[in-house]
Amino acid sequence: MRVLVLGHGKTGKLVADVAAERGHGVHVLDAKENKDAAALTPPFVAGFDVVIDFTAPEAVVQNMRACLATGAKMVIGTTGWYDKLADMRGLAERRSASLLYGTNYSVGVQVMMQVAAQMAKSLKDAGYAFTIEETHHVTKLDSPSGTALSLAEVVEEAAGVAIVPIEAKRVGDAAGTHLLIATSEADRLVLQHDSFSRRGFAEGAVRAAEWLVKQKSGSYDFREVFSKL
């Protein structure tokens, strides 16, 4: 499989390493080489089986517009752009492209989402209030994290509440911690996921790319397909 990795930050580098370890050919473009998506010409993109984006919110939409317009298959690990999701899904459909997106490519986080939904559903009418706490490295651009927002969405739907408050912290080089806290007058229940490194995200993204290249064109949410990888 020929993989184009967009973004040469800490996670992007790790994605490239994992893809190479799994026997794929890898080419990496950093921000300087791809300013305003200028490098993503149709002939260039056509040289790859799949594109994996771990860039930044201000760059990812331009990258998607350029790649999806060619009918490419894309895995998006960047967050902070979901106000454009409907537009990008529409573009993928019009151009027979493939778009796989997710706020977190860790399989452990996806299992946490499932447990959180069951937890919220079980405590729905038991007098509990839900809150979320998340901690990431100081260079993370979006706050709250996309994962925390997804977790809140899951809990809000399962518990039937309007808003789950999120406290976001940015500390050092923290890889990522998410806590779902349910508090009543009698006790407190905490569901926690700790990332020890970014490798879980990178492995999930590469496995998602391997899955995507075998699928027909369309848009896919990682939450709905991770168990098929």
Rank of each mutant, 00 (worst) to 15 (best):
I132S: 04
D49A: 14
A209I: 11
E185C: 08
A202S: 07
R198F: 02
A37I: 03
T11V: 13
V51S: 10
M1T: 01
S184W: 02
I166P: 07
A46G: 09
V155Y: 01
D221G: 14
L100C: 09
K73F: 06
A174T: 09
A59W: 15
D142C: 13
T183S: 05
K73D: 03
A92L: 11
V171M: 13
G77W: 14
Q215K: 15
G160H: 11
A209K: 02
V161Y: 11
A39K: 08
T177W: 01
A148L: 00
T183H: 00
A56R: 15
T147K: 07
A159N: 04
P144L: 01
G77F: 00
M113P: 00
S219Y: 07
L191Q: 09
S227E: 14
E33P: 08
R89D: 10
A86R: 12
A19M: 02
G200N: 05
A116T: 08
L180I: 08
M88F: 07
W81L: 06
M88I: 12
G218H: 03
R223H: 13
G200T: 00
D30N: 15
S145T: 09
R188E: 09
D53T: 13
M88E: 11
G204N: 04
G218M: 04
D125H: 13
V155G: 02
K228D: 15
G102D: 05
G160T: 00
A66G: 07
P43C: 01
A209T: 05
M112Q: 00
D194K: 00
R223S: 13
G12D: 01
S143I: 10
T79Y: 14
G7N: 11
A37L: 12
V3I: 07
Y101P: 11
V115Y: 01
V75F: 03
T79A: 15
S122G: 03
V60G: 12
A117S: 12
Y82D: 12
L99Y: 02
T41I: 08
G25D: 14
S184H: 12
G108P: 07
T139E: 03
E33L: 06
G23L: 03
Y82W: 08
K228Q: 15
R170N: 05
P42G: 11
G7E: 06
E210M: 01
R95M: 15
A168S: 12
H137P: 00
G25W: 07
C67P: 04
I163L: 15
G200W: 05
I52P: 00
A129N: 01
L189R: 13
G172L: 10
P165I: 06
V111I: 14
T177P: 06
H24C: 08
M74Y: 14
K214M: 09
K84W: 02
W81Y: 11
L100A: 03
G172S: 14
S143K: 15
D30W: 01
L4S: 01
K169N: 14
F201I: 09
L212A: 06
K84Y: 07
V61M: 05
E203W: 02
L189N: 13
Q192K: 14
R95I: 13
P144K: 11
F44M: 04
D30H: 10
Y128C: 07
